[in-house]
Simulated assay, not measured.
Amino acid sequence: MTVTAARRAWLTDLPVLLVAVVWGSSYLAAKGVTTSGTVLAVLVLRFAVVLPVLVAAGWRKLRALNGAQIRGAGVLGLILAVIFLLETYGVVHTSATNAGLIISLTMIFTPLAESRLRGTRLPRSFVAAAGLSVAGVLLLTQGAGFSEPSLGDLLMLGAAVARTVHVLAMSRMRSVQGADAMSLTTVQLGGSVLVFALLCAAPGMGATPWAAAADFGPADWAWLLYLSVFCTLFAFFVQMWAVRRTSPSRVSLLLGTEPVWAAVAGIALAGDRPGWPGLVGVVLILAGTAWGRTAADPGPGAAQQRRRPAAGPSEEEPDATHPGLEPAGRP
Protein backbone atom coordinates (compact mmCIF):
# COMPACT_ATOMS: atom_id res chain seq x y z
CA MET A 1 0.00 0.00 0.00
CA THR A 2 1.40 3.36 -1.01
CA VAL A 3 1.63 6.29 1.37
CA THR A 4 -1.25 8.02 -0.44
CA ALA A 5 -3.44 4.92 -0.29
CA ALA A 6 -2.63 4.42 3.38
CA ARG A 7 -3.56 8.03 4.10
CA ARG A 8 -6.86 7.65 2.26
CA ALA A 9 -7.63 4.46 4.19
CA TRP A 10 -6.88 6.23 7.47
CA LEU A 11 -9.14 9.15 6.51
CA THR A 12 -11.94 6.66 5.85
CA ASP A 13 -11.31 4.65 9.00
CA LEU A 14 -11.23 7.61 11.37
CA PRO A 15 -14.91 8.63 11.04
CA VAL A 16 -15.97 5.00 11.43
CA LEU A 17 -13.86 4.68 14.55
CA LEU A 18 -15.51 7.86 15.85
CA VAL A 19 -18.88 6.15 15.37
CA ALA A 20 -17.69 3.32 17.60
CA VAL A 21 -16.57 5.88 20.19
CA VAL A 22 -19.89 7.74 20.22
CA TRP A 23 -21.82 4.48 20.33
CA GLY A 24 -19.72 3.38 23.29
CA SER A 25 -20.41 6.67 25.05
CA SER A 26 -24.15 6.58 24.25
CA TYR A 27 -24.88 4.54 27.38
CA LEU A 28 -23.35 7.27 29.51
CA ALA A 29 -25.37 9.88 27.60
CA ALA A 30 -28.58 7.93 28.09
CA LYS A 31 -27.94 7.71 31.83
CA GLY A 32 -27.31 11.45 31.89
CA VAL A 33 -30.69 12.41 30.45
CA THR A 34 -33.01 9.52 31.37
CA THR A 35 -34.74 8.44 34.57
CA SER A 36 -37.12 5.52 35.07
CA GLY A 37 -40.03 7.96 34.68
CA THR A 38 -38.83 9.63 31.48
CA VAL A 39 -37.70 6.71 29.31
CA LEU A 40 -40.60 6.93 26.86
CA ALA A 41 -40.51 10.72 26.75
CA VAL A 42 -36.77 10.77 26.01
CA LEU A 43 -37.16 8.20 23.23
CA VAL A 44 -39.91 10.27 21.58
CA LEU A 45 -37.90 13.49 21.87
CA ARG A 46 -34.69 11.90 20.66
CA PHE A 47 -36.18 10.60 17.43
CA ALA A 48 -38.36 13.65 16.87
CA VAL A 49 -35.03 15.28 15.98
CA VAL A 50 -33.86 12.40 13.79
CA LEU A 51 -36.91 11.46 11.73
CA PRO A 52 -37.43 14.76 9.84
CA VAL A 53 -33.80 14.72 8.70
CA LEU A 54 -34.02 11.12 7.46
CA VAL A 55 -37.33 11.78 5.71
CA ALA A 56 -36.01 14.91 3.99
CA ALA A 57 -32.73 13.22 2.97
CA GLY A 58 -34.37 10.12 1.52
CA TRP A 59 -37.81 11.31 0.48
CA ARG A 60 -37.54 10.17 -3.15
CA LYS A 61 -36.45 6.63 -2.29
CA LEU A 62 -38.87 6.50 0.62
CA ARG A 63 -41.76 7.08 -1.80
CA ALA A 64 -40.44 4.24 -3.97
CA LEU A 65 -41.03 1.60 -1.26
CA ASN A 66 -43.91 -0.73 -2.07
CA GLY A 67 -46.59 -1.88 0.36
CA ALA A 68 -44.86 -5.15 1.23
CA GLN A 69 -41.60 -3.37 2.01
CA ILE A 70 -43.37 -0.83 4.22
CA ARG A 71 -45.21 -3.58 6.11
CA GLY A 72 -42.00 -5.56 6.53
CA ALA A 73 -40.11 -2.52 7.80
CA GLY A 74 -43.03 -1.79 10.12
CA VAL A 75 -42.73 -5.25 11.68
CA LEU A 76 -39.00 -4.70 12.11
CA GLY A 77 -39.84 -1.35 13.70
CA LEU A 78 -41.91 -3.10 16.36
CA ILE A 79 -38.95 -5.33 17.21
CA LEU A 80 -36.74 -2.26 17.21
CA ALA A 81 -39.09 -0.54 19.67
CA VAL A 82 -38.69 -3.50 22.04
CA ILE A 83 -34.90 -3.21 21.72
CA PHE A 84 -34.92 0.50 22.55
CA LEU A 85 -37.22 0.00 25.52
CA LEU A 86 -35.14 -2.81 26.98
CA GLU A 87 -31.87 -0.94 26.39
CA THR A 88 -33.07 2.39 27.77
CA TYR A 89 -34.80 0.98 30.83
CA GLY A 90 -31.78 -1.28 31.29
CA VAL A 91 -29.21 1.50 31.21
CA VAL A 92 -31.23 3.41 33.82
CA HIS A 93 -30.92 0.48 36.22
CA THR A 94 -27.31 -0.53 35.67
CA SER A 95 -23.95 1.11 35.04
CA ALA A 96 -22.88 2.48 31.67
CA THR A 97 -20.02 -0.05 31.66
CA ASN A 98 -22.29 -3.04 32.25
CA ALA A 99 -24.79 -1.82 29.65
CA GLY A 100 -22.23 -1.39 26.89
CA LEU A 101 -20.52 -4.71 27.53
CA ILE A 102 -23.58 -6.89 28.04
CA ILE A 103 -25.23 -5.65 24.83
CA SER A 104 -22.09 -6.68 22.94
CA LEU A 105 -23.18 -10.29 23.48
CA THR A 106 -25.34 -9.76 20.37
CA MET A 107 -22.16 -10.54 18.43
CA ILE A 108 -22.14 -13.96 20.10
CA PHE A 109 -25.87 -14.68 20.19
CA THR A 110 -26.49 -13.97 16.50
CA PRO A 111 -24.11 -16.55 14.99
CA LEU A 112 -25.30 -19.10 17.58
CA ALA A 113 -28.96 -18.53 16.70
CA GLU A 114 -28.30 -18.52 12.95
CA SER A 115 -26.33 -21.74 13.12
CA ARG A 116 -29.28 -23.40 14.85
CA LEU A 117 -31.68 -22.15 12.19
CA ARG A 118 -29.40 -23.31 9.39
CA GLY A 119 -28.61 -26.63 11.06
CA THR A 120 -24.87 -26.01 10.79
CA ARG A 121 -22.08 -26.22 13.31
CA LEU A 122 -19.96 -23.33 14.41
CA PRO A 123 -16.20 -23.76 14.84
CA ARG A 124 -15.08 -24.94 18.26
CA SER A 125 -13.10 -21.74 18.59
CA PHE A 126 -16.34 -19.75 18.38
CA VAL A 127 -17.97 -21.91 21.07
CA ALA A 128 -14.94 -21.28 23.27
CA ALA A 129 -15.16 -17.54 22.59
CA ALA A 130 -18.87 -17.56 23.48
CA GLY A 131 -18.11 -19.33 26.75
CA LEU A 132 -15.44 -16.74 27.52
CA SER A 133 -17.89 -13.89 26.93
CA VAL A 134 -20.60 -15.44 29.10
CA ALA A 135 -18.10 -16.02 31.89
CA GLY A 136 -17.08 -12.37 31.56
CA VAL A 137 -20.68 -11.19 31.94
CA LEU A 138 -21.10 -13.32 35.06
CA LEU A 139 -18.00 -11.75 36.59
CA LEU A 140 -18.94 -8.24 35.43
CA THR A 141 -22.27 -8.36 37.25
CA GLN A 142 -20.53 -9.46 40.45
CA GLY A 143 -18.07 -6.60 40.70
CA ALA A 144 -19.21 -5.55 44.16
CA GLY A 145 -19.34 -9.07 45.51
CA PHE A 146 -21.23 -12.17 44.44
CA SER A 147 -24.95 -11.44 44.23
CA GLU A 148 -27.86 -11.61 41.82
CA PRO A 149 -27.49 -9.55 38.62
CA SER A 150 -29.33 -6.25 38.78
CA LEU A 151 -32.60 -5.60 36.95
CA GLY A 152 -30.69 -3.41 34.50
CA ASP A 153 -28.21 -6.20 33.74
CA LEU A 154 -31.08 -8.59 32.94
CA LEU A 155 -32.82 -6.00 30.76
CA MET A 156 -29.61 -5.43 28.79
CA LEU A 157 -29.28 -9.19 28.35
CA GLY A 158 -32.84 -9.23 27.02
CA ALA A 159 -31.94 -6.38 24.67
CA ALA A 160 -29.02 -8.42 23.29
CA VAL A 161 -31.43 -11.29 22.60
CA ALA A 162 -33.92 -8.89 20.97
CA ARG A 163 -31.17 -7.48 18.75
CA THR A 164 -30.40 -11.01 17.62
CA VAL A 165 -34.06 -11.53 16.73
CA HIS A 166 -34.05 -8.24 14.81
CA VAL A 167 -30.97 -9.12 12.76
CA LEU A 168 -32.28 -12.60 11.92
CA ALA A 169 -35.72 -11.24 11.00
CA MET A 170 -34.14 -8.59 8.78
CA SER A 171 -31.98 -11.14 6.98
CA ARG A 172 -34.87 -13.56 6.40
CA MET A 173 -37.70 -11.15 5.57
CA ARG A 174 -37.91 -11.29 1.78
CA SER A 175 -40.11 -8.21 1.52
CA VAL A 176 -37.31 -5.89 2.67
CA GLN A 177 -34.45 -7.51 0.79
CA GLY A 178 -32.99 -5.16 -1.79
CA ALA A 179 -34.79 -2.10 -0.42
CA ASP A 180 -32.95 1.15 0.20
CA ALA A 181 -31.24 1.16 3.60
CA MET A 182 -32.13 4.73 4.52
CA SER A 183 -35.79 4.19 3.65
CA LEU A 184 -36.00 1.03 5.74
CA THR A 185 -34.32 2.78 8.65
CA THR A 186 -36.76 5.69 8.41
CA VAL A 187 -39.83 3.43 8.40
CA GLN A 188 -38.50 1.36 11.28
CA LEU A 189 -37.78 4.43 13.37
CA GLY A 190 -41.16 5.88 12.52
CA GLY A 191 -42.86 2.68 13.68
CA SER A 192 -40.83 2.68 16.88
CA VAL A 193 -41.67 6.30 17.67
CA LEU A 194 -45.36 5.55 17.11
CA VAL A 195 -45.11 2.76 19.71
CA PHE A 196 -43.37 5.10 22.18
CA ALA A 197 -45.97 7.84 21.62
CA LEU A 198 -48.88 5.43 22.17
CA LEU A 199 -47.28 4.13 25.36
CA CYS A 200 -46.72 7.71 26.54
CA ALA A 201 -50.43 8.38 26.13
CA ALA A 202 -51.35 5.47 28.42
CA PRO A 203 -51.93 6.39 32.08
CA GLY A 204 -49.14 5.63 34.55
CA MET A 205 -46.41 5.37 31.91
CA GLY A 206 -44.33 8.29 33.15
CA ALA A 207 -43.81 11.84 31.98
CA THR A 208 -45.11 13.05 28.64
CA PRO A 209 -42.53 14.33 26.13
CA TRP A 210 -43.58 17.96 26.63
CA ALA A 211 -43.52 17.63 30.44
CA ALA A 212 -40.06 16.07 30.33
CA ALA A 213 -38.84 18.74 27.91
CA ALA A 214 -40.11 21.48 30.20
CA ASP A 215 -38.05 20.05 33.07
CA PHE A 216 -34.85 19.64 31.04
CA GLY A 217 -31.88 21.80 31.91
CA PRO A 218 -28.98 22.66 29.58
CA ALA A 219 -27.14 19.44 30.45
CA ASP A 220 -30.21 17.33 29.66
CA TRP A 221 -30.64 18.99 26.27
CA ALA A 222 -26.95 18.52 25.56
CA TRP A 223 -27.19 14.77 26.27
CA LEU A 224 -30.38 14.45 24.20
CA LEU A 225 -28.89 16.25 21.20
CA TYR A 226 -25.74 14.15 21.52
CA LEU A 227 -27.84 10.98 21.30
CA SER A 228 -29.85 12.33 18.36
CA VAL A 229 -27.20 14.08 16.29
CA PHE A 230 -24.06 12.05 16.94
CA CYS A 231 -25.18 8.59 18.09
CA THR A 232 -27.91 8.36 15.44
CA LEU A 233 -27.59 10.72 12.46
CA PHE A 234 -23.80 11.00 12.40
CA ALA A 235 -23.43 7.24 12.92
CA PHE A 236 -25.85 6.34 10.16
CA PHE A 237 -24.50 8.69 7.52
CA VAL A 238 -20.86 7.82 8.28
CA GLN A 239 -21.64 4.14 7.75
CA MET A 240 -23.42 4.89 4.49
CA TRP A 241 -20.42 6.94 3.36
CA ALA A 242 -17.67 4.61 4.57
CA VAL A 243 -19.05 1.31 3.30
CA ARG A 244 -18.77 2.66 -0.25
CA ARG A 245 -15.10 3.57 0.24
CA THR A 246 -13.88 0.50 2.09
CA SER A 247 -14.95 -3.09 2.70
CA PRO A 248 -17.96 -3.99 4.91
CA SER A 249 -15.67 -6.24 6.95
CA ARG A 250 -13.32 -3.35 7.68
CA VAL A 251 -16.25 -1.17 8.79
CA SER A 252 -17.46 -4.03 10.97
CA LEU A 253 -14.02 -4.46 12.52
CA LEU A 254 -13.84 -0.80 13.49
CA LEU A 255 -17.41 -0.70 14.81
CA GLY A 256 -16.64 -3.83 16.79
CA THR A 257 -14.47 -1.73 19.11
CA GLU A 258 -17.64 -0.19 20.58
CA PRO A 259 -17.55 -2.30 23.80
CA VAL A 260 -14.02 -1.03 24.45
CA TRP A 261 -15.21 2.58 24.34
CA ALA A 262 -18.25 1.76 26.46
CA ALA A 263 -15.92 0.43 29.16
CA VAL A 264 -13.59 3.43 28.82
CA ALA A 265 -16.47 5.91 29.07
CA GLY A 266 -18.08 4.12 32.00
CA ILE A 267 -14.91 3.72 34.04
CA ALA A 268 -13.11 6.96 33.15
CA LEU A 269 -16.05 9.39 32.85
CA ALA A 270 -18.94 7.89 34.81
CA GLY A 271 -16.78 6.69 37.69
CA ASP A 272 -17.95 3.07 37.42
CA ARG A 273 -15.99 0.83 39.75
CA PRO A 274 -16.57 -2.77 38.69
CA GLY A 275 -14.11 -4.19 41.26
CA TRP A 276 -11.54 -6.86 40.51
CA PRO A 277 -14.07 -9.54 39.47
CA GLY A 278 -15.74 -6.97 37.23
CA LEU A 279 -12.46 -5.87 35.66
CA VAL A 280 -11.61 -9.48 34.88
CA GLY A 281 -15.10 -9.76 33.39
CA VAL A 282 -14.48 -6.70 31.20
CA VAL A 283 -11.31 -8.28 29.81
CA LEU A 284 -13.04 -11.63 29.19
CA ILE A 285 -16.00 -10.01 27.39
CA LEU A 286 -13.78 -7.90 25.15
CA ALA A 287 -11.54 -10.87 24.38
CA GLY A 288 -14.46 -13.23 23.84
CA THR A 289 -16.45 -10.96 21.51
CA ALA A 290 -13.35 -10.06 19.49
CA TRP A 291 -12.36 -13.74 19.20
CA GLY A 292 -15.95 -14.70 18.38
CA ARG A 293 -16.19 -12.18 15.54
CA THR A 294 -13.04 -13.63 14.02
CA ALA A 295 -14.07 -17.24 14.52
CA ALA A 296 -17.55 -16.78 13.04
CA ASP A 297 -16.47 -14.90 9.89
CA PRO A 298 -16.95 -16.25 7.34
CA GLY A 299 -19.77 -18.43 8.58
CA PRO A 300 -23.42 -18.40 9.51
CA GLY A 301 -23.00 -15.23 11.50
CA ALA A 302 -20.89 -13.33 9.05
CA ALA A 303 -23.77 -11.17 7.92
CA GLN A 304 -24.18 -9.85 11.43
CA GLN A 305 -20.55 -8.90 11.52
CA ARG A 306 -21.03 -6.84 8.38
CA ARG A 307 -24.26 -5.15 9.43
CA ARG A 308 -24.99 -3.54 12.75
CA PRO A 309 -28.52 -3.81 13.95
CA ALA A 310 -31.54 -1.20 11.08
CA ALA A 311 -30.07 -0.46 7.87
CA GLY A 312 -31.10 -3.17 5.53
CA PRO A 313 -30.14 -6.49 4.13
CA SER A 314 -27.89 -5.35 1.31
CA GLU A 315 -24.23 -6.11 1.82
CA GLU A 316 -23.52 -2.80 0.15
CA GLU A 317 -25.01 -0.86 3.05
CA PRO A 318 -24.48 -0.97 6.81
CA ASP A 319 -27.11 -1.77 9.32
CA ALA A 320 -28.00 1.41 11.15
CA THR A 321 -29.93 0.05 14.03
CA HIS A 322 -27.49 -0.11 16.75
CA PRO A 323 -28.45 3.31 19.41
CA GLY A 324 -27.38 4.76 18.48
CA LEU A 325 -28.85 3.82 15.26
CA GLU A 326 -29.20 1.71 16.86
CA PRO A 327 -31.72 3.08 14.40
CA ALA A 328 -31.38 1.08 16.93
CA GLY A 329 -28.87 3.30 17.72
CA ARG A 330 -27.42 2.89 20.95
CA PRO A 331 -29.05 2.51 23.36
Results as ranks from 00 to 15, higher is better:
194 L>F: 09
288 G>K: 08
314 S>I: 05
145 G>I: 13
33 V>L: 06
12 T>W: 13
38 T>N: 06
190 G>K: 10
278 G>H: 11
118 R>T: 01
260 V>Y: 12
119 G>A: 11
91 V>E: 08
240 M>Y: 00
230 F>S: 02
253 L>H: 03
185 T>R: 09
125 S>T: 15
305 Q>V: 04
182 M>G: 13
165 V>Y: 01
85 L>W: 10
99 A>V: 11
69 Q>H: 00
113 A>M: 11
123 P>K: 08
110 T>E: 03
80 L>W: 11
249 S>G: 05
100 G>P: 01
24 G>Y: 05
173 M>G: 03
250 R>M: 11
12 T>R: 10
161 V>R: 00
171 S>Y: 08
311 A>M: 15
112 L>H: 05
158 G>K: 08
320 A>K: 10
104 S>I: 05
28 L>M: 00
237 F>N: 06
62 L>K: 04
279 L>Y: 14
3 V>P: 00
157 L>I: 14
292 G>E: 12
290 A>L: 15
164 T>F: 00
330 R>Y: 15
316 E>R: 12
77 G>R: 02
217 G>C: 01
123 P>I: 11
233 L>S: 04
161 V>Q: 00
261 W>Q: 02
329 G>S: 15
236 F>G: 11
298 P>A: 02
232 T>G: 07
310 A>R: 13
255 L>N: 00
219 A>Q: 12
307 R>E: 08
111 P>D: 01
286 L>E: 08
170 M>W: 10
295 A>W: 11
89 Y>P: 00
27 Y>H: 04
33 V>W: 09
127 V>L: 14
